[in-house]
Design a protein around this nucleic acid. Sequence first.
DNA 1: TCTAACCTTGACGTTGAGGTAAAACATCGC
DNA 2: GCGATGTTTTACCTCAACGTCAAGGTTAGA
Lengths: 169, 169
Amino acid sequence: MAQKRASTAVGPEESCLQIGEVAERTGVTQRTLRFYEEKGLLKLPIRLEGGFRLYSEVDIQRVEQIKRLQKLLGFTLAEIKEMVDAEEVKLQLQAEYRPDAAISQKKTQLLRAIEVTERQHGLIRQKVDALREMQSKLEERLDTFHGWQVHLEEAQAKADGKAKTKAKA
Amino acid sequence: MAQKRASTAVGPEESCLQIGEVAERTGVTQRTLRFYEEKGLLKLPIRLEGGFRLYSEVDIQRVEQIKRLQKLLGFTLAEIKEMVDAEEVKLQLQAEYRPDAAISQKKTQLLRAIEVTERQHGLIRQKVDALREMQSKLEERLDTFHGWQVHLEEAQAKADGKAKTKAKA
DNA sequence: TCTAACCTTGACGTTGAGGTAAAACATCGC
DNA sequence: GCGATGTTTTACCTCAACGTCAAGGTTAGA
């Protein structure tokens, strides 16, 4: 362990994790974190004077989100980027909600965000539908299998019975 | 169009589509079909004397299944292979159900098939759950957005009203 | 028989999503 | 100041899932 928490260098409330710890806690490699950054999936992290990246808990959550979207749901990193971008827009709108200059510009941004969100929603519904269909098919198949299993048990019992009778005789 | 349906060359009931037509109907390329074959996702098709591949409707269905699993649900071809292999086992068991020699062997196979199917089922449930969570989050977000939208409209109306009053004065 | 359209195998290229290795800098505890 | 770790950038490697020629064989139809 070479470094402790550099907890006073940047801001008062940031959690300030270095890349190694983020990697460990999220289960991805450091390379992957840099790669995501390069691809715009993670925003450029603040740096220590020496150039070391400093992450926050929010970043960790985002990484976990990315992994879920990718591994569980099969989205590509490009699609995921679109999603996190939309999220970014939301946060931005949320933060800048007070200083209400340029209302019509905000309206445009908002419309864009809504559009993206609705597309995502539709995409997900498609996936859910497909999954449900698969699921019911699998259940059907399992039923069939169990039926066969019973059938096989019976057949075997009969065969055994015959064998025993023969052995007795 | 250089060839017609070679409908009498192999069997009486097979549909006999050539690779080009299968590609067109499924929306994948010929290269992809050969690739799937190479990877064991499609069984080796029967061939015309000249070596041309001949597919059936069942093959088309399988290709469509593969594409769904892959694009919609994010399974890798390796995972998909496992699934279609399981399906193959099922068909095999189904076909060989009559000649009931070696019952215990069949039981083993059946157990294996059940195991795979149940794993798939669980996997899919996980995915559905994750997707549902995402979906409700998105709906929540859309609600927020629409609220903001209304808010912005009001703000703009107010601003416009002021402007008009000023212009009148 | 000849040709246009279709198919074959083979080999190399590409893109996405990282892995791995190297050389040099940073930080901490001593 | 030094050594042990931890990080940084650069650069090349890999693996999956195809794309893209290239060179040649096949088939139906005029």
